[in-house]
Amino acid sequence: MAELAFILIGALLVNNFVLAQFLGLCPFIGASGQYDTAAAMGLATTFVLTLAAASSWIIHQFVLLPLDLTYLRIIAFIVVIAGTVQLTELYLKSTSPLLHQVLGIYLPLITSNCAVLGVTLLALQQSLTFVETLVFAVGAALGFTLVMVLFAAIRERLMHARIPAPFAGAPITLITAGILSLAFMGFAGFGS
């Protein structure tokens, strides 16, 4: 149980995928301009991440390993992730067309979110069990969502700030992301 808690906290804060491992930066910067979009993006990614990590683990364990095809794991996982994203998109399109429209291009882009592929590969690398993989994926996804929500709230506040012209836009966004990453360094060492 303590082991699972460590995995969760580790993926959520200590080795936060965005701010400590620098994965999934495209949606982090691209979809964090508005709070609602960012929160929706976080939830959609959470769903895809968890489902993709679970199905990847199953495919690796019961298809790739027995057939001795582990060298195909990256391709296999990308297909799994793309399939999960397609499923999510179909589901969103039918249940919440508005959200589907708001997320727009960023929804299919979850496919190329390196954090998603990163979670599946890192879970494999650490030879986690199925339950551990699930906890790891949920931790990573919650960490992603947390950072998205915090960052989007900060960016909405920055829109009202009198940023000097040379820093307006991308520069101040990246500076803020850097300071946020600096703040997350305080979690270094938890669970070790």
């Binding site: 915090l150 506040r157 946020l180 600096l182 703040a183 997350f184 979690f187 060492g189 938890f190």
Partner: peptide, 29 residues
């Protein structure tokens, strides 16, 4: 407290305050 007790840095005030600052726009919202 958490950073002092379990983190790598002996004192975590700066990190804790920066994290609190990061939380502030969300709390204000």
């Amino acid at each position: 407290f958490c950073i002092r007790a379990w983190g790598n840095y002996p004192d975590g005030i700066a990190f804790a305050v920066l994290l609190g600052n990061a939380l502030t726009p969300y709390l204000d919202r």
